[in-house]
Write a protein that binds this DNA or RNA. Sequence first.
DNA 1: CGTATGCTCAAACGATCGTTTGAACGACAT
DNA 2: ATGTCGTTCAAACGATCGTTTGAGCATACG
Lengths: 204, 204
Amino acid sequence: MNRTGSTKERILGAAETLFAQRGFDGASLRQLTSAAGVNLAAVNYHFGSKEKLVEQVFRRRLDALNAQRLAALAKVAGQPDTRLEDVLDAFIRPALELSHDDSGSLFMRVLARAFAEHDDSLRKFLSENYGHVMRQFTAEFARLLPRLSKEELYWRIDLATGALTHAMSGFGIIQRKSDVSERAHREQTVQHLIRFAAAGLNAT
Amino acid sequence: MNRTGSTKERILGAAETLFAQRGFDGASLRQLTSAAGVNLAAVNYHFGSKEKLVEQVFRRRLDALNAQRLAALAKVAGQPDTRLEDVLDAFIRPALELSHDDSGSLFMRVLARAFAEHDDSLRKFLSENYGHVMRQFTAEFARLLPRLSKEELYWRIDLATGALTHAMSGFGIIQRKSDVSERAHREQTVQHLIRFAAAGLNAT
DNA sequence: CGTATGCTCAAACGATCGTTTGAACGACAT
DNA sequence: ATGTCGTTCAAACGATCGTTTGAGCATACG
């Protein structure tokens, strides 16, 4: 039972953990408020409904994540000497760094769940609020891969996204070995992802 | 309301559709039995519980899918002139062909959901019953990619699996154009997947 | 004919869900 | 002191969930 921070923050923290562990439907407000150490009614008082709480859980992390992604992209976009790997780095690294602290790592699983759940209202929310990020990255990929048709490019970005989502959400079987530091392992993960995705995007 | 086939078959068919659309928890037995045109109690009578129904939904499709995968793999495994693309074809094509009819296509989404839900009992069931398939494919990949370390190989297979799962479950944005036949579109999809995954696995 | 057997049915069970209610509380301004 | 405002609280609401029950029905076998 967490007792630090405001009621809203405690709810958001507990929600992130429980949504990652049991899904949006699977985590009940009673489990959630109990873990946060707040009253059951606090969720509806502060957020209006469970669905709006879900949105806030996303917004809190995605605002930061996508701001970092766009900042990293801005440093390389349009530059004459930019490599494909640089753009992928701008896309991947912020997500991996978000996964650094424990709750951030859980959030990537929440995100993957959101994709899997196929919930239309949630997908609409994501598309409306963060679709422009994907569009900017797509434009830069198009610049660096001019020989690919539009359709071919969309296909490959889609497949690369699938690989990255899969890996970042911790579905993968790869675990950090005890003799590798957390920081070093994250760097290895980034390098594996970039190498794989760059090769796939670049395929003949 | 489906009225063809036995009660068990109607339940399995409706379950596959509804599980794909709303998830395992999201689809209630009342929706399910109503769609199947059977009585509510029929699920517990024929399957014992909702959880065992879920297992049967998986078993019905995965037995056929993995048999086809292993048969296709057997034709190329160990052969001196086998290419990486041939092994990927053996893995991908049966899944895509399963997706041909509508209910099969839905099943791939059920499968992706199962991964996302992180349900331990379900993952254990999948691992116990079908883990040997993945092991055989991994062994053949190892033969064709001898320069990769074990760790590197696992990483890349994991990433390739993520891309394939993502694409096959219909998360992708790519839709068949009206001027392309269903069969031709499936063949294009196979080719895109193979080219992308082969390049990723082969990355320097 | 009688009686098992396999199956279907409407109805109910207890549990849990998201949400709402109205009282109580503390801080602070009037 | 009195009133207001934001917040927390226990309790209850109606809905829906998976599961169980026991009667009813058909077919097959003695």
